[in-house]
Amino acid sequence: MTKALTFVCTLVFVTILWGVTAPAYADTYYDVQPGDTLWQISKLHGISVEQIQTSNSLNSTMIHPGQKLLITGSAPAAQPITVSRGTSRAEMVIDYARTLIGAPYAYRGQSPAGFDCSGYVQYVFKNFGVDMPRTASEQFNIGTKVNSSEARPGDIVAFASGGAINHTGIYLGGGSFISSTSSHGVDIAPVFGSYWANHFYGFSRIIP
C-alpha cells in the first residue's frame, strides 16, 4: 500500500513539474509597425510567412501600420528571433533571397519546390509587399535604370541574348548576384563572370 501510494505521489509530482517547465506556444497578437514586413514579423516570432497569412486570412503579403495580426503558435517570448530595426529593406530582401539557395530549377516554377529565374525574383520580392511582373523583361523595365557603378544590393540585374532580356537575378553587392538557373537552381554567381559578362544587360532599382 505504501509503495503504491509513493508511486502515485511521484507520478503526480512529475506531471505537475512537466506542466510547469514545458514551453508554452501560445497565440498572441502583434501590432504592425511602420516598415514592418511579413517576413520580418515571421522571424521575430519564429514562424513562417504562410502561417501568418493563414491565421489572418491574408491573400497577399501587403500589411499596414496599426494592423493587428494574430500570431498562432509563436515561440515563447523569452526566446525570440530578433531582427534589427536598423536593417534596411534591401538587406532583408537579399538575406531572404539567400535562404532559398539550393532550391531546384523548374520551368515556370514560382515556389521553393522549383523556380525559374523570374519566378524566383517575383517570389522573393512578394514577401516584402512588392508585386513584381512575371517575365524577366517586365521585371527589369518596371524599375529605375542605374549604371553599373551605382548598383547596390537589392537591385535587379538583367541578362540578354540577341538584345532580348531572358534572365533576371537580385544583386548582392560585391559583383555577385543570386538567381535561379537551369544548371544550378538558386545559386550565387559573379555578374561579370566568364559566362554572364557576355550577356549582361543592366541594373534596375526596385527599392528606392
Rank of each mutant, 00 (worst) to 15 (best):
S148M: 10
G174K: 02
G46L: 06
P104L: 11
V49D: 01
L11H: 02
S194D: 12
T144S: 13
M62E: 14
D36T: 04
C9D: 02
S60P: 01
S204G: 05
F115G: 07
A26M: 06
A158I: 09
T2Q: 07
G175P: 06
L17R: 00
R205T: 06
R108P: 00
I156E: 03
N147V: 04
G174E: 05
L69S: 07
F140N: 01
I81P: 00
I81T: 15
R98W: 00
G174I: 02
N141A: 14
H167Y: 14
M92N: 02
I63Q: 02
E50M: 08
G169M: 11
F128R: 05
S74F: 01
F200G: 01
G193Q: 08
Q122W: 01
A197C: 07
G173A: 09
F159I: 08
N127S: 13
I41S: 00
S194T: 11
G175Q: 08
V157M: 08
D31F: 00
I41A: 04
F140R: 00
E91D: 14
A160E: 15
M92Q: 11
A106E: 04
P112D: 08
F177R: 00
G175D: 07
F7G: 05
G193C: 12
A75L: 15
V130T: 08
S148W: 10
T99N: 05
S88E: 10
P112W: 09
F140T: 03
T168S: 03
T10I: 15
I142W: 01
G175W: 10
N127Y: 06
V12Q: 01
S194M: 08
D36G: 09
Q51L: 08
A77K: 12
E50C: 00
R85H: 08
S118G: 14
G175H: 06
F203H: 03
R108C: 06
G185S: 13
L70K: 15
L5W: 05
Q122N: 13
V20Q: 11
D155C: 09
S148I: 12
L5D: 12
S55I: 00
I156P: 05
G102H: 07
R205G: 06
N147F: 07
P104M: 11
T6M: 12
E50H: 01
F177E: 02
T54W: 02
D95P: 04
S176T: 10
I156S: 05
T21L: 12
Y123S: 10
I170M: 01
S88G: 11
A136N: 09
S179E: 12
V124I: 14
N147H: 10
F13G: 13
P133G: 02
I188G: 00
V146A: 10
Q53L: 02
S55M: 09
G73E: 12
Q110K: 01
N59H: 11
Y120N: 07
A113V: 10
Q67T: 07
